[in-house]
Simulated assay, not measured.
Amino acid sequence: MFRIFLTHTPDSLPLLFPPRARAELEKHCTLVINPTGKVLKGAALAQAAAGCDLVIADRQTAVDQSFFTTATDVLAVMRCAVDISTIDVDAATANGVLVTRSIPTFATSVSELALGFMIDGARGISRSVAAYRNGEVPDPGMGQQLSGKTLGICGFGVIGRQLAILGRALGMNVIVTDPAPHPMAENIKNVPFDTLVGSADFIVCLAPSTPQTFGMFGARAFSLMKPDAMFINLARGELVDEVALEQVLDAGQIACAAMDVGSAHDQRPATRLAGRSDVIATPHIGGQTPQASEGQAMHVVSQVLQILNREIPDEAVNRAAATRLQARFMTSDTPSDRSTT
Rank of each mutant, 00 (worst) to 15 (best):
M1W: 07
F2K: 02
S12P: 00
L15M: 15
F17D: 03
E24Q: 13
V32R: 06
K38A: 14
L40Y: 05
A43C: 05
L45D: 03
A48S: 14
C52Y: 07
I56N: 00
A62W: 04
T72M: 00
L75I: 05
R79N: 12
R79I: 08
I84S: 07
V99Y: 08
G116V: 05
S128Q: 14
A130M: 11
E136Q: 15
D139V: 13
L146T: 06
S147Y: 08
I153K: 09
I159T: 05
T177M: 01
D178H: 14
P179S: 09
A180I: 14
P183I: 09
P192N: 10
S199N: 15
D201A: 03
D201Y: 06
V204F: 12
L206G: 03
A207K: 01
A221C: 01
F222G: 04
P227K: 14
G237H: 02
V240W: 05
D241N: 08
V243N: 11
L245I: 09
L245Y: 07
Q247D: 13
V248K: 03
A258Y: 00
M259S: 11
H265D: 14
R268K: 15
V279T: 03
H284P: 02
I285F: 10
Q288R: 10
Q291W: 01
V301Q: 04
V301I: 08
V304D: 00
L308G: 11
R324P: 05
R324E: 07
L325W: 01
M330N: 14
M330W: 15
